[in-house]
């Protein structure tokens, strides 16, 4: 078609009467096109800058808000366990500890289970079962965290108090280190319960990302391995997992990001106690739970500032976790792409 070779401006001029197609008009149309083009570019640029402005604003607000606390307590804020609103002596160690420990428990449970589900869905599942399980996993991800919290407090925690926790205490009681880790009394709620709830919450993230990267493994690799006489276990262990390793790690990091910042569900079941206990059954607290619990009634600048400083710490932790996750995912995309 001849129009394909026509300059853009001539195409634009085609719709106006032929008599008008004089050189000045051509110039005007060109100018209009240029204007549209540049204003569109500016618009997209502004929209993108907005993200940076918001992020920068949050960082500045967090730093500014936490300055009084950081100035007062200095580095000691990070390593002190005290959290005493009466004497205004605050330290972030107990919430940091709780945040890290609950996330570790969640990951220790959710990562193996998530991988097992993903392997089953991609390699072993009969086709008719694949969709129901896949949808169920995605629904699990869609449940609001407050629902997990209520369910955790009313159903899960009393259940654990009656069953799992006494069993753990009896089982590990005679073993030296583990007896401290699982020392009673069984409250039902506590650090372990919060970790278990978090595991359920991050499971869908890890499962669905792992499933996607497993599906991205080129069939020819798997077929070649099967052709060599590999068992399903060997194909998964030596072909699928090595190929998808980086992508799975990215998914795990995204799940970890969620576990670190989760607030409502944890607040309901962790016990909200500013103490570091050797026992996983004892109540503890996390950064986000502390902020959610205490911000409304924080009297005095130092108290409020200490809570903002906790927010800053969480921001830094999650920023690094998510940065690593993005980097991992970027690498896998490059390899697949």
């Amino acid at each position: 078609m001849p129009s394909r070779r026509m300059p853009v401006v001539d195409i634009a001029l085609r719709d106006v009467p032929a008599v008008a197609a004089t050189p000045p008009d051509r110039k005007r149309v060109l100018a209009r096109l240029r204007l549209t083009n540049s204003s569109f570019r500016t618009l997209t640029l502004l929209a993108s800058i907005l993200v940076l402005v918001i992020l920068g604003g949050v960082i500045i607000a967090l730093i500014e808000g936490s300055l009084p606390a950081l100035r007062q307590f200095g580095f000691g804020f990070l390593v002190s366990e005290r959290w005493n609103p009466v004497t205004e002596n605050f330290g972030a160690l107990a919430p940091i500890y709780g945040t890290v420990v609950t996330s570790i428990i969640a990951m220790m449970i959710a990562v193996p289970f998530g991988l097992l589900i993903a392997v089953f869905l991609t390699e072993l599942c009969p086709p008719w079962l694949r969709r129901p399980i896949g949808i169920a996993i995605e629904l699990l991800a869609g449940i609001p965290s407050i629902i997990y919290g209520i369910w955790g407090l009313f159903v899960f925690a009393p259940f654990l108090q009656r069953t799992l926790q006494p069993a753990l205490i009896d089982l590990f009681g005679p073993i030296p280190v583990l007896s401290t880790l699982f020392a009673g009394p069984p409250y039902g709620i506590g650090t372990l319960t919060a970790g278990l709830i978090l595991a359920i919450m991050v499971l869908p993230f890890i499962t669905s990302i792992s499933r996607d990267v497993f599906e991205a493994v080129p069939p020819v690799l798997k077929e070649a391995a099967y052709g060599l006489g590999c068992t399903t276990w060997e194909v998964v262990r030596y072909v699928v997992i090595p190929f998808a390793r980086v992508g799975v790690t990215g998914g795990v990091m995204l799940g970890l990001g969620r576990a670190l910042g989760e607030t409502m569900a944890v607040t309901f079941v962790i016990g909200n106690a500013h103490r570091i206990s050797g026992s996983l059954l004892a109540p503890g607290t996390t950064i986000s739970a502390t902020i959610a619990n205490e911000f409304t009634e924080a009297l005095g600048d130092l108290y409020t500032s200490s809570l903002v400083a906790l927010g800053l710490i969480l921001f830094v932790i999650t920023f690094f976790v998510l940065a690593i996750a993005r980097y991992m995912l970027m690498r896998i995309e490059r390899r697949i792409g």
Partner: peptide
């Protein structure tokens, strides 16, 4: 209005 509790579980 809030204190450093020596024992127990906190609830909102």
């Amino acid at each position: 209005t809030s204190v450093e509790w020596p024992a127990g579980i906190g609830a909102k």
